[in-house]
Design a protein around this nucleic acid. Sequence first.
DNA 1: GAACGCTATGGGAGCGTTCCCACAAACATA
DNA 2: TATGTTTGTGGGAACGCTCCCATAGCGTTC
Lengths: 376, 376
Amino acid sequence: MTLEEVAKLAGTSRSTVSRVINDDPKVSDEVRTRVKRIIADTGYRPNASARNLAGKSTQVISLLVPRSPVETFNDPFYSLLLKGLSSVCNDRDYGLMLLMLDKSDPHMQHRLLNTHNTDGFILGLSLVNNNPFIPYLTERNIPFVSIGRHPYYTRINYVDVDNIGAAAEAVHHMIKLGLRRIATITFSLQVTAGADRREGYLRALTEAGITPDPELIVEGGFSSLQGYEAMRRLLPFRPEGVFVASDTMAVGAYRAIYEAGLRVPDDISVVGFDDNEQASHLVPALTTVRQPIAELGAVAAEILLDVISEEASQPVQQVLPCALVVRRSCGTPVSNIQMDGKSRVEVGVYLPGQLDTDLTLAFFSASHNEKCCRLI
Amino acid sequence: MTLEEVAKLAGTSRSTVSRVINDDPKVSDEVRTRVKRIIADTGYRPNASARNLAGKSTQVISLLVPRSPVETFNDPFYSLLLKGLSSVCNDRDYGLMLLMLDKSDPHMQHRLLNTHNTDGFILGLSLVNNNPFIPYLTERNIPFVSIGRHPYYTRINYVDVDNIGAAAEAVHHMIKLGLRRIATITFSLQVTAGADRREGYLRALTEAGITPDPELIVEGGFSSLQGYEAMRRLLPFRPEGVFVASDTMAVGAYRAIYEAGLRVPDDISVVGFDDNEQASHLVPALTTVRQPIAELGAVAAEILLDVISEEASQPVQQVLPCALVVRRSCGTPVSNIQMDGKSRVEVGVYLPGQLDTDLTLAFFSASHNEKCCRLI
DNA sequence: GAACGCTATGGGAGCGTTCCCACAAACATA
DNA sequence: TATGTTTGTGGGAACGCTCCCATAGCGTTC
């Protein structure tokens, strides 16, 4: 079924049918209703390829995920990101393609090259080194937005959270509780977020007049196994607290701590990063940094669509705030939390009935009527 | 940059360049290398829309997710499904689009209608009632594969796990341990999988000569909150064991049990379904049914691509097996597990170092050197 | 040496749209 | 009445490919 065939049935021309479909006002009401009726009767669907070919835009964007270790997928990060992306795409009538590429895939180039029907890309992970995608897309003038800034390519479009600030705040939280020997297990340093969180850790220590101790800085990665191993390397140095730069790794860290016969937070305080579902299931529930991941996706999609339609000349860069979610893993009595004047505190006792998506933080902890407190 | 322009630079014709791009053998080596060089130099990318228009196929399939409660996304189900889907799509050079549609979205029809560039659909959830997608796609002769069978539309392509059999096995496991008053919290009955798991529960009881007690059957849903509430409704009836038809709900069920001052498995045994990451984090670790979700996605994609290319006349229907993963939540000493002759048992003590993606079941439980045992 | 095949190549037609221009009819303006 | 403007409509051209057929050049066969 084509425009021409619909036109024939409606006793009019291809052009007029096209106008009806595209809501062009210059069609008489009579013809318009006649055409619409035929379209409904025949179940005609415009051919997207033809439209795109003639119209020079595909109305589709792609999320590019450098398919890293399987952990990529155990992480709810991409689920949430997709949620944000797809809601914006739906609103603006764009399609969303998913492109999982291993940067070491020999066909990577080919797949990117032949990626069908894409007006632009969302880069799902900001690889620090050997990021083949940014130069590739830049050279070809293909619009893209990176999830996460990039330390060297500073003139790209990106959305990021304030990793440095949030990490500093997390560490600061431990410092305020009187801890001094604070270690960190870094997130993958392959990724900007990893480097930034370490940076925030260092900044908080320095600001507090504590000299960072290299022994207390261990490189982790994405997986809880890496968190586990890193924690085991750390334990001999007897840290009082650990800033674990992802909740997934924090799970592994807990395990290492328990295996060593130590307790959280009595022997070691732990702060995570992400506010995974896991964070609230851990016992004790994990104090961590909440990132607005779905919003990150939504904003990225909006920026990309704007860039595509407007050809902005200046890079668009946006940084979203995080929030520290205080639970039990640092043993904080809520009343001890001191404010720095910049954040607002929300204190609440989460009761059983309130368990819902946004309050999963209540989870197991709630069964002890734990007080939860969020800086927002 | 078009074919014609490349041809001009290479001193040949559009047709020949097209042949080079499509690996047509009928091109002399000399011309071929010349053309390839020009393509590389100019960064020429074939226009997908034009290809599709001329070639009558878009090389893209869509995953259709009826965007249900937010729970959809806390569930790792779609992450894993996407993993399977995208690996097949990559292998076969297909693109994967993501289409999140609420069936109550007034523009649903419109969005489906205008979905760009799609050769076929994967239906991500088998809605039992008011499933508007199946008739829509069937009428229009658009190829699709459903994840999960459908009770009424029996002649569609689908991939499913053996929900009935697996649920029966799970309940059978409790029966073998001597439990009699076994309750169930159903999965959303809006979904085939929910109905099937209840069916399996009933079957296992009946086969064991136990009359199902309506008081012990409570409808749950997708979320852990629903699991929590269902369990609270169930507790007054003093079940000895509960088959909770999704791990996410089992988390809520645990909580209700603990709040009532009872213990798992001492007072109540629990069996879940899914083998989420959460399942192994619970204390005690949850005995549950493992579904091969990524494989489900991969098989679905393969079937869809086959259907697209071959126009199979018979519906393709495939059922994948599940495995019962026995942990602590029924208090089973491993040696007590009796075999039914159909399954093989794998018993292992998961030690700290073995923590990896596939063995997350070891998780916290592993710190107690728990014995894990899987029927495989 | 004529007829035939095979190989590499070129060009036309067509895919189903959108965009633009042409044009007829009706109406407003001088 | 002649001229311009507006409104609705129709058709040509183009978008950048693929597919098919035509053909030139060459070797093979009878």
